[in-house]
Amino acid sequence: MAVEAIAVATTDLASIQASQMGMKAIGAGLAVGLTGVGTGVAEMGIGAAAVGAIAENKDFFGLGLLFTVIPETIVIFGLVVGLLLLF
């Protein structure tokens, strides 16, 4: 009886751990994926405007690039959260 109960408990534990790991993986995926979408949406407008400005005046390149990549912070935070979740 007792041996069986322990066996059941360990398999339960193993499956719980596995599902926890899976949840973490899903969480990490969501963190990176959703922040990526957010960054993309934010960069869409800035990037279009920056390209327009650079077409008018090439000197704007540095500043344009700078503005365009500002929202990248979001996805980097997402990446960090994802890595923290997994490791």
Partner: peptide, 10 residues
Amino acid sequence: TIISHVLSYA
């Protein structure tokens, strides 16, 4: 930005 710039090197 202090944090985000450092983390950006990730």
